[in-house]
């Protein structure tokens, strides 16, 4: 019994993390019309930066600062590289791919030079075992779920109830019209790119103490899964991304209990991909 209760809890935690990643990707697609292949790299950057900053700022300080830095990097890169050329999909894909490769290599290089090692162990920031029956659940993970949910709620409020959110939706729905009514489209786009990057970085910084390890390649698989979640959720649809993220997390965690972990993940990916056969535009996508 306990293993199932714990698995349920863990599925919720990872659901919130995947949602952070997928919502970020979806936001970026909505505003800029590009598929951010560097999303996994931002995730990795967040995890590594927060690991590197923890000795000076403490874990919680690093958790706040790392996503901000990554967000600024994202916004800075968006302006010259992405926005001006976002029209041709093939070019934008290659640009994102190039950014991903270069960022990843720069990180690898600096990590190698600074520490001589690529994989680093991450110590848990706090020890708070929550007893569930005879077993324990790591209380840190519960905090992760709470932080991620709070950020997602804040985002939802921003999206639905503020002037900024209104501009975002306008840019997503119609570029030209948004420009005509005086919205500074390029600036909004850069801001959204930075925001998406920061969300990915936050997910990375939160995950570090869960996986107990950070390395420059940790974002590769994350990218592929979150891209699929976003597409199945409907490109640009935040609600869809959220729903599919949670669905994927439940499938992955519960299937792992029943089968080989790799087959379970493959099964979860195939299952959510099948949704595309029924709704090619994705769950939340407009028909």
């Amino acid at each position: 019994m306990e293993p199932w209760a714990l698995t349920l809890l863990n599925a919720l935690v990872w659901g919130a993390l995947w949602a952070l990643l997928a919502v970020g990707l979806s936001l970026i697609y909505g505003a800029l019309g590009v598929l951010n292949l560097a999303h996994g790299t931002f995730y990795m950057l967040g995890a590594l930066l927060s690991w590197a900053l923890t000795p000076t700022l403490g874990f919680w300080g690093a958790l706040c600062v790392a996503p901000m830095i990554v967000g600024l990097i994202g916004a800075g890169l968006a302006q010259p590289l992405v926005i001006r050329r976002a029209r041709a999909p093939l070019s934008s894909l290659l640009i994102m791919f190039g950014i991903m490769l270069i960022l990843q290599q720069l990180v690898t290089l600096s990590l190698q030079m600074a520490t001589g090692e690529l994989r680093h162990a991450v110590a848990p920031p706090l020890r708070w075992p929550i007893a569930i029956g005879a077993r324990f659940y790591d209380g840190y993970r519960v905090i992760v779920a709470l932080v991620a949910s709070a950020v997602l709620l804040g985002l939802w409020a921003l999206w639905g109830w503020t002037r900024w959110g209104c501009m975002l939706r306008a840019v997503r729905d119609n570029h030209e019209l948004a420009r005509v009514v005086g919205i500074p489209v390029p600036r909004v786009q850069a801001g959204v790119f930075g925001l998406g990057a920061a969300l990915a970085a936050l997910a990375g910084a939160l995950t570090g103490p869960i996986t107990r390890e950070v390395s420059p390649t940790m974002g590769t698989e994350i990218l592929l899964v979150s891209v699929l979640i976003t597409v199945v959720g409907g490109m640009g649809s935040l609600g869809g991304a959220f729903a599919v993220a949670v669905l994927y997390s439940f499938l992955e965690n519960f299937l792992t209990m029943l089968a080989d972990p790799m087959l379970a993940r493959a099964g979860a990916l195939v299952t959510i991909a099948l949704i595309l056969l029924i709704r090619p535009q994705g769950l939340g996508g407009a028909a």
């Binding site: 293993p3 714990l6 863990n10 972990p261």
Partner: peptide, 10 residues
């Protein structure tokens, strides 16, 4: 896998 939690559950 990145998270070994589910494996411990088994």
């Amino acid at each position: 896998p990145a998270d070994l939690f589910s494996i411990i559950q088994k």
